[in-house]
Design a binder for these strands. Structure first.
Lengths: 349, 349
DNA sequence: TGACATAAAGTTAACGGTAACGCAACGCTC
DNA sequence: GAGCGTTGCGTTACCGTTAACTTTATGTCA
């Protein structure tokens, strides 16, 4: 019971410290953790006691290097602003917890060069799996991920070439639904407004879906009021003023995000345009505030929580050798105060 | 140039694969990465070429095990909902990038048992530093962090016992400022409303600050309308109805967060109470929508971006051996439409 | 030209675990 | 009581990289 086996302070205790203290081999201590039923209960208790006393924390770098799994899940997102993906990460992280998988986070901020750098960086930790936003990546990213051999779950979007597995929603369909909703509510001259980064393919797909719905209805072409910068409420204000200055006939605005829509509503109020009678607005994303602005914002609610959860399930399944698969998650269109109610006369009568 | 040195597919290339291909020792390849000026430029080029061709990705598990640093920064937050800390993480992650430090994320969801588990888990990766929300932790967490010897930056809050270093704001002062603002605008019977988890010491400090400002002004005691659950707009609605049913004399509501305040504004509208004339509301957090609800929400804006940035700076400084320190970040009170304007007659005479 | 510093590589030994294998002690069967 | 499977533990090798030494080639100066 002397302190001879203690490490000089500075370096944390190792399995060997425990082994010496208990008087067994290193491997027995390792087994007590990894395959407890192969170690006598009495010995197991002594080992546990020693670990507790020494405040032993296993070194998973060593474990990952030696063993086959590393217990790291790389998560690559394109943005952390405005909860866009925070709740996906939240659900994902929490679901991975019970399998003892740790999230390593990277944020590309919609920069494809960063994406390459960050994916390479994530892979250098030999993750058990990688979850990444989007299905459209720089060629080098796809190459790195494919050749790494780790399971890859692409999130948020689906369709096109999937590297391995995917969990997401149909963005083109969502954009089409936004436009169809506006058309059904009697708006005829529509615009698509918001942030549209060069590499935000989801936004492009929604815009495309909206444009085709407009075309299918035989209405004038969808007007685009977009800019390559982050979606903020102030951007919505600016774009609305620009849009209505040049296209005063617009009577419906399809927004690329709720935060942008907040600014749109404010700009319309300033210009004296009545929402929803004079002009309609629909958002995307169902921000926590969408139901609390005036008027309340009609929007599309993607099931972010479900995406995170399903991604976690899929990661575990893939690690356990199950086959790749693609899950499509539903979204819901929430009709609220910023678009006119359905006219019974137009609808059922 | 045969394929003899290639690894059988399945296991990714290692330094040794590169070494064999170029015809040098493993160490030379390592040096080409780590201390390039000790390797002949010509040889360096060959090595770089081989790495590129084989799609070499270094194994940082091995690097971390062997070397002294691990390049991982553990980040422990209490919530990911509603952007509360997402923008801190965003700023932090992006600032750490240039020092090649990788964020490993954990979310306690305000559960102290989870906090112990997660901190232990983070430490098992032998991080170069740990950034964690709050200065009040379970004893075991403080013990683990202290005995681990890694630099620890406590974020968001300051004051009390700091483990190592801290970057945060004065929450008691912010709560006091919320109350002082309400008092200055002529509200006299104040309530503090919102989510208050048992372990959210920042919320407690703000409530305490508000209560002492009310007491100092000689006004009736601050009424508390709080619940131990996540802050959502719906919670604000419910609590407002409960509060005004039992305390109809209340004329000012200090909210613990903006998202809760959104619900408060809605409930007040439903009850026919005029904001800001009849009753005032102030939020906390400056949510992206705060300036876009009706009326626009007076609130306190913490500089989350600065906190993330400063935390990154501090982490790098501590890794480089600089002394621990505590940085206090400013907040700003934004007076908007949900509180009455200052009455000149009361103010300047 | 020999002594000596310097540059550029190679050798060797960790880092802290895990996994495969080996071996003794024990109980069971016939 | 010999044969054999099982339980419980120790031995040994290895994961991929870095750091500390050592060695060899090259240049410099008295």
């Amino acid at each position: 019971m002397s302190g001879a086996e203690e490490r000089e302070k500075g370096s944390p205790p190792t399995l060997a410290s425990i082994a010496v203290r208990v008087g067994v081999s290193v491997n027995t201590v390792s087994r007590a953790l990894r395959a407890p039923n192969t170690v006598r209960p009495e010995l197991r208790r002594q080992i546990a006691k020693a670990m507790d006393e020494l405040n032993y924390v296993p070194n998973r770098l060593a474990g990952g290097l030696s063993g086959t799994r590393s217990d790291i899940v790389g998560v690559v997102v394109t943005s952390l602003y405005y909860s866009e993906f925070a709740s996906i990460i939240d659900a994902l992280q929490s679901a991975l917890l019970k399998d003892n998988l740790q999230v390593m986070l990277a944020n590309t901020r919609y920069d494809p060069d960063q994406e390459v750098t960050l994916v390479r960086s994530i892979l250098s930790w030999r993750p058990a799996a990688v979850a990444i936003i989007g299905v459209d990546h720089p060629a080098k990213v796809s190459e790195l991920l494919t050749s790494s051999g780790v399971p890859v779950i692409e999130m948020w979007d689906v369709g096109g070439d999937i590297i391995d597995s995917a969990v997401g929603m149909d963005h083109e369909g969502a954009g089409k639904a936004q436009a169809d909703h506006m058309i059904a509510r009697g708006y005829r001259r529509l615009a698509f407004l918001g942030s549209m980064r060069e590499n935000d393919m989801r936004a492009r797909k929604r815009a495309h879906g909206a444009a085709s719905a407009v075309a299918a209805a035989g209405l004038p072409d969808l007007v685009h009021a977009v800019r390559q910068e982050a979606g903020r409420p102030a951007l919505g204000e600016e774009l609305t003023h620009e849009l209505l200055d040049s296209n005063p006939q617009i009577d419906g605005i399809i927004c690329n995000s709720d935060v942008v829509a907040f600014g749109v509503l404010k700009a319309l109020h300033e210009r004296g345009r009545k929402v929803p009678d004079d002009i309609g607005v629909i958002g995307f994303g169902d921000s926590e505030a969408a139901n609390y602005v005036t008027p309340s914002l009609s929007t599309v609610r993607p099931d972010r929580h479900r995406i995170g959860e399903l991604t976690a399930e899929l990661i575990v399944a893939r690690i356990n050798g199950e086959e790749p698969r693609t899950n499509v998650v539903d979204w819901e269109l929430l009709a609220r105060g910023s678009t006119r109610p359905l006219l019974k006369s137009l609808n059922g009568g």
